[in-house]
Computed example of a mutant assay.
Amino acid sequence: MEGPEAVEGPHLLNLSRMGLEHLSLEQVPEERRRDAHQLFLPHNRLVVLPPSVALFSQLQLLDVSNNGLAYIGDEILGLSHLRTLLAKNNRLDEFSLPKEMGTMRLETVNFSGNQFEELPTQLLQMATLKTLSLGGNRLKSIPAEIENVTSLEFLYLGGNFISYIPPELANLRYLSCLVLCDNRIQSVPPQLAQLHSLRSLSLHNNLLTYLPREILSLIRLQELSLRGNPLVVRFVRDLTYTPPTLLELAARTIKSRGMTYCPRELPENLVGYLDLASKCPNPKCAGVYFDSCVRHIKFVDFCGKYRLPLMHYLCSPECSSPCSSVSSQSESDSEDEASVAARRMQKVLLG
């Protein structure tokens, strides 16, 4: 071989799909090795990381995805500028990494599609790590030490065998995206409400039967994916929602708009019904109700077929909700705050 053909920019060297089982990086001219900031080596049937990768001293990104890698040697430790390591779809496990790898200042690591049964301790020692992906592995748990990855913003652990979410996960103050779909998770710890930076939470295709009420405290949450969980299946199956009658809707319109009426214009039974209007005790709610009170209904699509009331406040006069005549002022305020938090969840993906 006279030398690898490369597709490259000023700082990029792409040696993907060269079909080389024993890639000889020494053949890359020295000035190219010195200037390369990104090195792409996917689809090369590599079994180990070539020791000559250490010659690329200025590397910031290394992509060795879609090979047959079973081992990454100590040569990677010399890449002091490396910030992104992509090694998807290989044969790596928790014994495949250098013991001192935790001292590296990596910011993005993608080990999805490998054979990890445990989160490598080396990754749990990287305080600089912002993005960590280990989807499609064989992970059975999330260690409590995950809290040590203090800079983590994106955590992808979908497609594993995880059954438990440790409460220590809530200590990741910068976490904005958490993907735990396609696992065996049965419950969500209420401590996750402390993830004040969380914007996306993917929990679809698990074994969840309920969510803690504290989830409403995630005021920045914009996307919550729940499809394929028993709680959603039960919600659809058991949904019994009776909307207000036309009589009540008409009566509410008359009362809320201050329309005048008198016994000479309406039957006696309707006049009596209108006089039974109850004003919601919540000072922030100007509505009235008769047999039931609906303050807020948000409809969402389910599998493109159903329109379901996902968030609603529906009660009778005997209910202890904010619309109840026996609710205390503090209870009303508390419920109103919860409804505001709920409305901030802009997308709830059930289907």
Rank of each mutant, 00 (worst) to 15 (best):
R252M: 15
R257H: 14
L124S: 10
Q194N: 10
E168I: 14
L195P: 02
P281W: 13
M101K: 09
Q125S: 09
C181I: 01
L132I: 01
N89L: 04
V236F: 11
L41N: 07
T121N: 13
L180S: 08
R227S: 02
A250F: 05
L239E: 00
P263E: 14
E118T: 06
T209E: 07
V28Y: 00
L249E: 00
Q194L: 08
C293L: 03
R220P: 06
E168Q: 14
H296W: 07
D301F: 12
N206P: 01
G136N: 06
H196N: 09
E214L: 02
R257Q: 13
F161P: 00
L276A: 06
S187C: 12
E318A: 04
I165C: 02
L276D: 11
I219Q: 15
V109E: 08
E331F: 15
R105C: 14
T128A: 14
P51F: 14
N148C: 02
V109P: 07
P29A: 07
S328K: 09
L266Y: 05
A338E: 00
I146P: 00
Y156H: 09
C262S: 11
T84F: 03
M18C: 10
A251L: 04
G9K: 11
G3H: 13
C262P: 01
P230V: 10
G304T: 06
L79N: 06
E26F: 09
V48I: 13
F111M: 05
D93Y: 13
G9L: 13
G9Q: 04
H11W: 15
R83S: 03
L152S: 01
I165G: 02
N229E: 04
T121K: 11
A6E: 09
L192G: 03
N44A: 10
E214A: 15
T150K: 11
L270M: 13
S202L: 14
G228N: 07
D291N: 12
E31I: 00
V326Y: 15
R237M: 13
I185H: 02
S256N: 13
C177K: 15
K298A: 14
P322W: 13
P51Y: 12
Q329A: 05
T242K: 15
V28S: 01
S163E: 15
L62E: 07
